[in-house]
Amino acid sequence: MAKKQKRNTKGNIITAAWQLFYEQGYDNTTVDEIIASAKTSKGSFYHYFNGKDALLSTLAYLFDEKYEELMENMEESMNSYEKLLFLNQELFTMIENSISIDLLARLLSTQLVTRGEKSLLDRSRLYYRLLSKIILEGQTSGELRTDISVGEIVKAYAICERAFMYDWCISGGEYSLRSYSQRMLPIFLSDFRASRNE
Rank of each mutant, 00 (worst) to 15 (best):
K4S: 09
K6V: 03
T9Q: 00
K10P: 02
G11H: 05
I13P: 01
A16E: 04
W18D: 02
Q19E: 15
L20N: 12
F21W: 10
F21Q: 08
E23V: 09
Q24T: 09
N28T: 01
T29P: 02
A36T: 08
A36K: 10
S37K: 15
K39M: 07
T40R: 11
S41I: 13
K42S: 15
K42G: 15
Y46T: 06
H47F: 14
Y48Q: 12
G51S: 07
D53W: 03
D53P: 03
L59S: 00
Y61P: 06
L62A: 12
L62P: 00
D64A: 15
E65N: 14
K66L: 05
K66V: 01
E69D: 03
M74H: 08
M74T: 11
E75R: 11
S80T: 12
Y81A: 01
K83R: 13
L85D: 03
L85Q: 07
N88W: 01
N88A: 09
Q89M: 04
E90I: 03
I95G: 02
E96F: 02
S100G: 14
I101Q: 07
D102T: 14
S109A: 04
T110E: 07
T110C: 06
T110D: 08
T114C: 04
R115W: 02
E117T: 13
K118S: 11
S119C: 05
S119W: 01
S119P: 12
L120E: 14
L121I: 15
D122L: 15
S124D: 12
R125F: 15
Y127N: 07
Y128Q: 10
L131T: 03
S132R: 14
L136A: 10
Q139P: 14
Q139F: 13
T140N: 13
L144I: 15
R145S: 04
T146L: 02
S149D: 07
V150Q: 08
V150N: 05
V154G: 08
K155Y: 10
K155F: 10
A158K: 04
C160K: 13
M165F: 08
Y166P: 02
Y166T: 13
W168E: 01
W168M: 01
C169H: 05
I170F: 11
G173F: 01
G173V: 01
Y175S: 12
Y175L: 14
S176N: 11
S176V: 07
L177M: 03
S181E: 04
R183L: 10
P186E: 03
F188I: 00
L189D: 08
S190T: 10
D191E: 10
R193Y: 07
R193Q: 12
S195F: 06
